[in-house]
Design a protein around this nucleic acid. Structure first.
Length: 119
DNA sequence: ATTTTGACGACCC
DNA sequence: TGGGTCGCCAAAA
């Protein structure tokens, strides 16, 4: 799979995330047929820039936004998510907001303990 | 040609 | 809670 088709597959996977839901870089990569290529997803989104992509629906696997809330990118993402009904707390979203759903515990609050770490 | 650098993430101590 | 390590790998330096 060449770089260009990989980019296309990733964009398609990102566009497939429904509004009001989020997914992680790693999950997007996997759905694009590129397991373990989370970093590539991040790079593609960064390069996509202002492209017509719901990039804000992609965040870290532990629920943290793509960038710290203090950064311009982080705040832009929080604003976009909030606009479509995704609750953002201290720069994080609950595991239940992920398209891939969280496990039972996660449904009660955020899943991995590490995700609760605030920053 | 080699090293560094990330919009990552699972693990380990 | 907080740091490292290691896998991954395309660009930039």
């Amino acid at each position: 799979m060449d770089a260009e088709s990989a980019r296309a597959a990733i964009c398609a996977a990102v566009r497939a995330i429904p509004a009001g839901k989020v997914s992680s870089y790693g999950a997007v990569a996997a759905r694009a047929g590129l397991p373990r290529r989370a970093r590539l997803v991040g790079r593609v989104l960064r390069e996509a820039g202002e492209a017509d992509l719901p990039w804000h629906r992609v965040l870290h696997a532990d629920g943290r936004l793509a960038a710290p809330l203090r950064s311009a990118l982080g705040r832009r993402q929080a604003r976009l998510l909030l606009a479509e009904g995704v609750r953002v707390h201290a720069g994080r979203v609950a595991a239940a907001c992920f398209v891939d759903g969280g496990d039972a515990d996660a449904l009660l609050w955020a899943s991995p303990q590490r995700a609760l770490r605030r920053r």
